[in-house]
């Protein structure tokens, strides 16, 4: 019997780094953003913005990229079929599109704007205010998209028999 160790390792890697990515996304949305609102009120926000946020963002953005690369490797020869939503690839294909949009949001909308917010890149107060709103909405968009993305990504495990997708 021939084994496919490469695909097995890519599947495992995709899940592990995917947990890191989406776990940190949920941390930002469900923990850090509400906590910062309270921390700003009592003057303790700098602990989060100086020590926690940069490190969380570091793991977050690279885990996002690693998740996409491992996912693409896992699709392998089925990559084009998935992104073309060919028959039999509808669920994983749309899941892949959602994951790709989310990766774009991380690197093009969230990270460059967070650099301005956290003072890693020079920005005026008005630029920071705009950056805050863009980064917030991109992060919330990813949280929203993560729900259908995860549903469709895990499709192969159960839904074919359960809901006929």
């Amino acid at each position: 019997m021939e084994y496919d160790y490469f695909t097995a390792i890519m599947r495992f890697t995709h899940v592990v780094v995917g947990v890191a990515w989406i776990g940190l996304l949920y941390y930002f949305n469900f923990v850090q953003v509400p906590a910062l609102k309270n921390a700003n009120a009592d003057g303790t926000a700098s602990g989060i913005t100086k020590h926690v946020a940069p490190l969380a963002l570091l793991w977050f953005r690279w885990a996002a990229l690693a998740t996409w690369i491992a996912g693409a490797a896992l699709l392998g020869a089925n990559f084009v079929s998935a992104f073309s939503l060919d028959t039999g690839y509808e669920a994983i294909g749309l899941g892949s599109w959602l994951g790709t949009i989310m990766l774009f949001n991380v690197w093009v909308l969230i990270w460059p704007n967070q650099q301005k917010i956290l003072g890693m890149k020079p920005a005026s107060d008005s630029e920071k205010t705009a950056a805050r709103r863009i980064a917030f909405l991109a992060s919330r968009t990813n949280t929203m998209l993560s729900i259908p993305m995860l549903f469709l990504m895990t499709n192969g495990l159960s839904h074919k028999g359960l809901i006929g997708l």
Binding site: L85, M144, F151, L152, I163, L165
Partner: peptide, 30 residues
């Protein structure tokens, strides 16, 4: 109308609704 993404609950509800819409579209039109 308020943006549902401004609240955590609104974000989750929007995600669940989007999931139902996607499943319906995939099952019926793609």
């Amino acid at each position: 109308m308020k943006n549902p993404l401004d609240s955590i609950l609104g974000t989750i509800v929007a995600g669940v609704i989007l999931t139902v819409v996607f499943v319906y579209l995939l099952k019926n039109f793609i």
